Measured scan of single mutants.
Amino acid sequence: GHYRIRINGREFEIRGISEEEIRHLEEALRNGADEKILKEIVDRLRG
């Protein structure tokens, strides 16, 4: 998958993330885990 997200007015492209991972992120966001989720995304993109 290849997705664009906007955070604090800046747009980011996220590549190589699966539909299942996105559902997991959405679930966590609904549970209020904003900073933790951003850290997970950044860590994943770093490799």
Results as ranks from 00 to 15, higher is better:
Arg30Tyr: 09
Gly1Ile: 06
Arg6Ser: 06
Arg6Met: 15
Ile17Thr: 03
Glu20Val: 08
Leu45Gly: 03
Glu21Thr: 06
Ile7Asp: 00
Asn31Phe: 10
Ser18Met: 04
Glu11Ser: 05
Ala33Gln: 07
Arg15Trp: 14
Asp34Val: 15
Ile22His: 03
Ile5Glu: 00
Glu21Pro: 01
Arg30Met: 12
Asp43Cys: 15
Ile22Leu: 07
Ile37Ser: 08
Ala33Cys: 09
Lys36Glu: 10
Tyr3Arg: 02
Ser18Gly: 07
Leu45Ile: 13
Ile22Gln: 04
Ile14Arg: 00
Glu11Ile: 15
Glu21Gln: 13
Arg10Trp: 11
Arg4Leu: 14
Leu29Ala: 04
His2Gly: 14
Glu20His: 10
Asp34Thr: 14
Glu20Gly: 08
Leu29Gly: 02
Glu40Asp: 08
Ala33Pro: 07
Asn8Gln: 05
His24Leu: 13
Glu40Ile: 13
Lys39Glu: 13
Ile7Leu: 05
Asn8Ser: 04
Leu38Trp: 07
Leu25Thr: 01
Leu38Tyr: 04
Ala33Arg: 06
His24Val: 14
Glu27Phe: 11
Leu38Arg: 02
Ala33Thr: 11
Gly47Lys: 10
Lys39Met: 15
Gly1His: 07
Ala28Thr: 09
Gly16Phe: 10
Asn8Met: 07
Glu21Val: 06
Ile37Trp: 09
Arg46Pro: 05
Arg44Phe: 13
Leu29Tyr: 05
Arg15Glu: 04
Leu29Cys: 04
Lys39Asn: 11
Asn31Ile: 09
Ile5Gln: 00
Leu38Asp: 01
His24Asn: 11
Phe12Cys: 03
Ala28Met: 15
Glu20Ala: 11
Gly1Thr: 04
Glu20Phe: 10
Gly32Val: 06
Glu40Phe: 14
Ile5Phe: 06
Gly16Pro: 03
Ile41Val: 06
Asn31Gly: 10
Asn31Asp: 10
Ile5Trp: 02
Ile17Lys: 02
Gly1Val: 05
Gly1Asn: 08
Leu25Cys: 02
Leu25Gly: 00
Asp34Glu: 10
Asp43Gln: 10
Arg10Ile: 15
Lys39Tyr: 15
Leu25Arg: 00
Gly9Trp: 01
Asn8Arg: 03
Ile41Pro: 00
Ile5Tyr: 03
Glu19Asn: 09
Glu27Pro: 01
Arg23Gln: 13
Ala33Asn: 06
Ile5Met: 02
Ile5Leu: 04
Asp34Trp: 15
Ile22Val: 07
Gly32Arg: 06
Arg10Leu: 12
Glu26Met: 12
Val42Ala: 04
Arg30Ile: 09
Arg4Met: 08
Ile22Glu: 03
Ile41Met: 14
Arg6Gly: 01
Glu26Asn: 06
Ile22Ser: 03
Gly1Met: 06
Gly32Asn: 08
Ile17Pro: 02
Gly47Met: 12
Leu38Pro: 01
His2Ser: 15
Gly47Asp: 09
